[in-house]
Design a protein around this nucleic acid. Structure first.
Lengths: 220, 220, 220, 220
DNA sequence: CCTTAATCGAGACGGTACGTCGTGTCTTTAT
DNA sequence: ATAAAGACACGACGTACCGTCTCGATTAAGG
C-alpha cells in the first residue's frame, strides 16, 4: 500500500496567471541560494527554536525533499544559511590576506575585531548561531563544523594581527599562539552567554586593555 | 447499529491486574523529587536536545500534567533538576571560605581550579548545563540563575587566588579584577562549547602558563 | 533533536468567537462516529483512490493520530465507514430473523435481494467497497473481514430464503447450502466487475429465472 | 562568497568508473520488453498495491521517463505486463479449437476447466490480474480488455462444453446460455476475491456437483 | 563518415501523503 | 482536591512516490 494511487489530479499547472515568465524551475546553485536565503529569513524572523524545515520549504517555494537532499539536519542548514549571510573576516578587512594600513596599531586592530564579534553576536543571526551551538552540545561533528566555519577564521585573523604586532615590535615574540588568539573571542562569547545583555563599547575596551594588551605586549 | 467492531478499542483501564500493591501514590515534595530525578536521568542519558517531557513522565511513572503544573518550560525543569543534583561549590573545594595551604603557589592554585572547572563541565550534568545556558539566551532569569549558581563562585574563588597571589608577591597588584578573573573560565567554557571534546590536562596547562601567568605575573 | 522545541506558540485557543458553546472536545464513541462519517463522505466524494487519511482528519476536525489509534490501515477505516452507513440485510427486511410475508414467493424474495445487491454495488459506496477488495487482494485478514461483514449476512439471508422455500415446497430439500446461497451474489458481483456497466432489471431477472430457479426448484 | 561547503553535492556523473563495458543502452522494443518483464516481476513480488513505477524503473535499470512515455498509468503498465507474460488460452487447453476426447463426460470437462481457472487465478500473475480488474472499476477500456483476454475464452470454452453435453444427452437443451456459462467462473472468482485463500479441489468439486450439475443436467 | 536528431539513463524538482512523535490541554478514574 | 493515565487537536518530522523536467551520453539514421 504505502503511498499513492493518489487520484490522478487534474494538474492545474497554470503558470500563476499574471506571472510574466513561467518562473523556470530552479536547480543546483540557484535553488540552493534560494533555500539558504529562506532559511536565513526564517531564522531571523521566528528564531531557531520555532524554525522548521517545512516553513523554509514553503518560503522558498520548493519541496522538503530538495532541502533534505542537501542538509541532513536543521542545524547544518541553519549553519550554512548563516555562513552565507554573515560577514566573514575578510569582509571587514581582517582576513588572513587582507592588508591592514600601516597607521593602525595592534590595539586598534584588536578593537576592530572585538567590535565585529560583538556586533555579529548581537544580531538575530548571532542568536541563531548560539542556538546552533546548543544543538552541538551533543554532536561532535557539528561542533567541529562550527569551529571550522566561524572560529577558525577569526582565530586566524587574530593570529595575523598578533604576528603583525610582533613585526612592529608591539607584541612580544612568543605571544602569537592559537591559545592566545582565542582569548578575546572566548571572553566576549562567554560574557554574552552569561548575562545576555548587550556588551558595551567599554567592556570591549576593558577586555582589550586589561587583558589582551597586558598579555601580549612587549615589555620593552 | 453495527459500529466499528474493527476499531482497536482503548484497552480497559484495569490497573495492571497482576500488581500486588500499587506502590502508594506520591504527591507534593516526594513526587517533585521523583520528577527531578527522572529529568536529571533523562538529560544525562539522551542529552538536552532529545529530552522530552513525555519521557520524563514515563520514567517518573507520572502524568505529563503533574509536570506541566510545576514547570512551564523544559529549560526550567532541567535547570531545577541540575540544581538538585549538581555538587555545590563548597563540595568541590571552591567555596568562598575554603582554605588553601600555604605551600601552594598561585600557579598551582590556578591549576587546581582549572581542573575542577573542566571536571564539572565534562560530566553529563555539565553537558546539560551548557545546553541550558545556551537555551537561556533569551531568558534573563535563567541566565542569572546559572551565573549565580555556577560562575559567581568560580569568579570569587579566582579573585581570591589572585589577591592571595598579590599578597605573596606572585601577582602584579592591578591584576585582581573581575575581568581578569573571568579569563580562565571563559577560555575553558569556550573551548568546551567549540569542540565538545574532552579537555586534556595539557590544554589546561597551556591556558594557564601561556595566558594566565603572563597576564598576571609580577614583572619581577 | 527529533522533534520540537517548537516555539511556545501563543495559544490562540479562542473558542471560535461566536460559537455558542465551546464545542466540547469529542472523545470515544462520539469522535469515532465523527471520523466514520467523515470517512464515508470522503470516499463518496473523491473515491477510494484519492481518499487520504489526511483529508478525513481535516474533515472530521481531528488529528491523524486519533484515526491511526483506531484503524491501522486506510482499508479498514473505509470498511468500517461503509459498514456504518450501508444498509444491513435487516434494514431491508431480509435479516435472518426478519419475517417475510406469507404471500411472497421464493422467487420474489430472490428478486428483492438481487435488486438490493445491485443497488448497493452501484452506489458510490459500492464503488468504494469494490476498491477495498483491491486492497484485500494481498491481505488475507482484510479479505476475511470483508467476507464476515458483507457477504456472510447476505449468505445467511439467502439461506433463510431457501429454507423457507423448502418449507413452502418451492425449493428442493437439498438446495439450502452455502455454496448455492453464494451463487446469486457471485454472479452479480462478477457481472459488475466484468463490465462495469449498470446491471439492468432484466439481467437480475435472467440470473434468477435462468440460474437460481432451475437450480433450486423442486422437480415436482 | 562562502556558499555551502556543507551541502551534499550531487555526485559527479561518472559512469561507474570500474565498469568495463557499459552494457549497451537499450531502446525501442528491447527496452519495452525489459520494462514489462520488470513490471511483471515487481507485481509478482510485492503485489499490486505496493507496486511503484519507481521500483520498476530501478529494476529495469532505466529512467522513469522511459516508462511514462509509454504507459500513462500504473494499471495499463501492469496490464500489458500481464498480457505479455500470462499463458494464452490455447496454452492451457482452453482455446476454442481444442478438442476434447470422447470418453470425457461433461462433469469431467467441467472439473478440468474449473481447475484451470483456479490454477491461473492462484498464480502471482492471477493475483495481479484480480487487482488490475478491481482497479479498472472506472475504466471501461481496461475492463473490456480484461474481459476479452481472460474471461471471454473461458465463457466460450464453457459454452462449448455445454453444447457438447447437450449433444451427448447429458445436459438439458436450454442450458447452453452465456448466463449459465458464467456461473462457474463467477463462483470461483467471487470465492477468490472474498477470502483470498487457496481454493481446494473439494471446493471446485462442490461448486460443480452442487451447482453446475443440478443446474444443467437433463432430468431424464 | 560524420553529423544530427532522437531517445535513453539518471535523477533533481515541486508536490502530496504517509505514519510517527511530541507538544500542551483536557477528561476520566481512583485514590 | 490532586495524582495517574492517557486521549485529544495540532503541527512538524523525515521518507516514499508521484509525474514533470533537465542534462549529458548514446545511438541509429541521414547527408
Amino acid at each position: 500500500m504505502a503511498t499513492s494511487e493518489t487520484a490522478r489530479r487534474v494538474k492545474a499547472n497554470s503558470p500563476a496567471p499574471g506571472a510574466v515568465a513561467v518562473a523556470q524551475r530552479r536547480r543546483g546553485a540557484a535553488l540552493e541560494r534560494a533555500i539558504l536565503a529562506a532559511a536565513f529569513a526564517e531564522v531571523s524572523h521566528v528564531g531557531y527554536a520555532a524554525f522548521s524545515v517545512e516553513s523554509v520549504a514553503a518560503r522558498a517555494r520548493t519541496g522538503k525533499a530538495s532541502i533534505y537532499r542537501r542538509w541532513p539536519t536543521k542545524a547544518e542548514l541553519v549553519l550554512d544559511a548563516l555562513d552565507a549571510e554573515l560577514p566573514s573576516p575578510r569582509d571587514i578587512g581582517l582576513g588572513p590576506d587582507c592588508h591592514i594600513d600601516e597607521s593602525v596599531t595592534t590595539e586598534q586592530a584588536l578593537h576592530r575585531i572585538g567590535e565585529t564579534i560583538v556586533r555579529v553576536l548581537s544580531s538575530p543571526a548571532g542568536a541563531a548561531m548560539r542556538a546552533v551551538k546548543l544543538e552541538a552540545v551533543d554532536d561532535l561533528k557539528l561542533a567541529d563544523l562550527i569551529d571550522q566555519r566561524f572560529h577558525e577564521p577569526r582565530r586566524a585573523a587574530l593570529l595575523g594581527i598578533l604576528e603583525r604586532g610582533i613585526a612592529r615590535g608591539e607584541v612580544r615574540p612568543d605571544a602569537a599562539t592559537p591559545v592566545v588568539a582565542d582569548v578575546l573571542p572566548a571572553m566576549l562569547v562567554h560574557r554574552m552567554l552569561l548575562t545576555n545583555e548587550p556588551i558595551s563599547a567599554d567592556e570591549v575596551h576593558n577586555a582589550i586593555s586589561l587583558v589582551m594588551i597586558p598579555l601580549v605586549q612587549a615589555h620593552g
